[in-house]
Computed example of a mutant assay.
Amino acid sequence: MNMPAQTNSNQECLTQAKLDEGMGAMNLHESCNVTKADIKTDRVDYAASCSIEGMTTLFEGYATFHGNRLEGKMSSDMNTPLGPMKMNTEYQGERVGDC
């Protein structure tokens, strides 16, 4: 089943102290485990596995950094009661000012 594209916008304050936490800055659910974190100055490649309420989800993606902005893609493979589902996400972010 194909679903129509959806757009969401979010704004949050990321301080240097939070960024210094590395992967801890991602605020992952407690049942998630980071399985890949290849962090470079201009790109991060990552993967995680989560098991929430009996559903297993595998995430894999990347982000590229361009000064005050970033962009990336992520795919999610979910094992749901309705059967396997795949979700593809494209995202972008930009610095909008001080916290």
Rank of each mutant, 00 (worst) to 15 (best):
M1Y: 09
M1C: 06
N2H: 09
M3K: 10
P4C: 02
A5S: 08
Q6W: 01
Q6V: 09
T7A: 11
N8Q: 13
N10Q: 08
Q11M: 10
Q11P: 00
E12W: 09
E12D: 10
E12V: 12
E12Q: 11
C13K: 07
C13S: 13
L14Q: 11
L14N: 10
T15C: 05
T15A: 06
K18R: 15
K18W: 09
K18L: 14
K18Q: 14
L19Y: 05
L19R: 11
L19F: 09
D20H: 02
E21K: 15
G22T: 08
M23Y: 02
G24F: 06
G24V: 06
M26E: 07
N27E: 11
H29E: 10
H29L: 01
S31N: 14
C32W: 00
N33K: 08
K36Q: 15
D38H: 06
I39E: 11
K40F: 10
D42G: 06
R43D: 06
R43M: 12
R43A: 15
R43W: 02
Y46A: 11
A47W: 01
A47R: 00
A48Q: 06
A48C: 01
A48K: 01
A48M: 13
S49M: 07
S49H: 03
C50F: 00
C50N: 02
S51V: 04
I52P: 01
E53D: 15
G54S: 05
G54I: 05
G54Q: 06
G54K: 05
T56S: 13
T56A: 12
T57R: 09
L58R: 03
F59E: 05
E60M: 07
G61R: 01
Y62P: 01
Y62W: 14
A63D: 12
T64V: 14
F65T: 06
F65A: 10
H66S: 15
N68C: 00
L70S: 11
L70E: 07
E71D: 15
E71P: 02
E71I: 00
K73W: 04
K73H: 10
M74A: 12
S75H: 06
S75F: 00
S76P: 00
D77I: 12
M78T: 12
N79K: 12
N79W: 03
T80S: 13
P81Q: 10
L82P: 00
L82T: 07
G83C: 07
G83T: 08
G83F: 09
G83E: 07
P84G: 12
P84S: 11
M85C: 04
M85T: 10
M85E: 08
K86T: 15
M87P: 00
N88E: 14
N88D: 15
N88R: 10
E90K: 12
Q92N: 13
Q92A: 14
Q92G: 13
E94I: 05
E94N: 05
R95F: 13
V96K: 11
V96M: 13
G97A: 07
G97N: 03
D98V: 07
C99L: 10
